[in-house]
Amino acid sequence: MQIFRLLVIAAAIFLTGCAATGPRYAEVEASFPTLRSGYGRLIIYRSGGLGAAVQPDIKLNGEIIGKSQPNGFFFVDRAAGKYTVSARTEVETVLDTELVEGRTTYVQSSITIGLFVGHPRLTLQSENAAVQHLPRLAYTGGIPVAPRTPRAKAVNNTAAVSADERNRPSGPVTLDDLSGLLPPAR
């Protein structure tokens, strides 16, 4: 009986360490970048459940865009069009979806029972279904977002735009563009 208790405690500690950490969706949603013209957003989330230690990479058209972490979410913005979302453990799961300009597509990731390791499962979700889970999930993505920072609004008055912003070339975002969003080095 004593060994059983120790195993349960060890398993609980191990599984607790597997859950995503970071700011919650409710804290960072306001700081998501505004979608560019011609782009859609893909939010992938996993609200816990079976197989917490199994965290497969999530790919979009073969490119790794994040990990399926329990109680976590991330997002990517891509040009509107058709895409394939996939995840692999001992089997590969594939979901075809379409990103629509100016809209957000939600995909829920989960793990089901497998022979040796859990199998990934990807399901398309409505916004109504996704918003039931997202507020308590931790942000695990690579795009820097700041808790409780208001979303940047489009400015129609060019006098209110700084000289740096007016002179900044348009195009893809670089690491230099994002450096101001990162916390100072410790």
Rank of each mutant, 00 (worst) to 15 (best):
Q125V: 01
R168C: 04
A19F: 11
S179D: 13
S37Y: 04
E165G: 02
P120G: 06
D96Y: 01
V100D: 01
R24Y: 08
P120Y: 10
G81Q: 12
S31G: 11
L181P: 01
I43D: 03
A26I: 14
Y106R: 07
A129W: 00
A11E: 04
S179K: 15
N61A: 09
V76I: 08
L42R: 07
S68V: 04
L124H: 08
I111E: 09
E92W: 02
R166D: 03
A10H: 01
I143V: 15
P150R: 10
N167K: 09
D57M: 05
A160R: 12
A130W: 02
Q55C: 04
R151Y: 00
T89H: 08
S162Q: 04
T123I: 09
Y83V: 12
L7W: 04
S170C: 05
N156T: 12
T105M: 12
A52H: 11
F74G: 05
E90S: 10
A129N: 15
V155F: 06
G142A: 08
G142F: 02
N157C: 02
L124F: 01
L137G: 08
A53D: 02
P33A: 03
I9N: 10
Q132C: 02
D177L: 00
G38H: 02
G40C: 11
L95Y: 01
G72I: 09
R148I: 01
S179L: 07
P183K: 02
F74C: 10
H119I: 11
A160N: 11
I44K: 05
Q108G: 07
V117R: 14
M1E: 13
V173D: 05
R5Q: 12
L115M: 09
R24A: 15
T16N: 13
K153T: 14
T16M: 14
K67Q: 12
L134K: 15
K67W: 07
R168D: 06
L182N: 13
P144M: 09
V54G: 00
K59Q: 14
G49L: 05
R5C: 03
V8P: 00
R78M: 06
Q125P: 00
R166V: 14
K153G: 08
T123V: 15
N157D: 15
Q125M: 12
E63D: 11
R103L: 10
G81K: 07
P172K: 10
D96T: 03
I3P: 01
L99I: 08
R168E: 06
K82L: 06
E90A: 10
V173G: 02
R136H: 13
G141I: 09
G62A: 07
S68D: 12
E127C: 11
E63W: 01
G180N: 09
G62P: 00
A154S: 10
S110E: 09
G81E: 06
L50Y: 15
F32E: 08
N156W: 04
P172A: 10
L182Y: 05
S162E: 12
F75G: 03
L99Y: 01
N167C: 09
E165L: 09
A160S: 14
A80N: 02
A163M: 09
I113E: 05
F32N: 05
P33Y: 00
F74L: 15
R186M: 06
K59S: 07
G22Q: 07
G171Q: 13
S47K: 12
R186H: 11
H133Y: 12
L15A: 06
L115K: 13
I111C: 14
L115Y: 11
L6S: 08
A53G: 10
T158G: 03
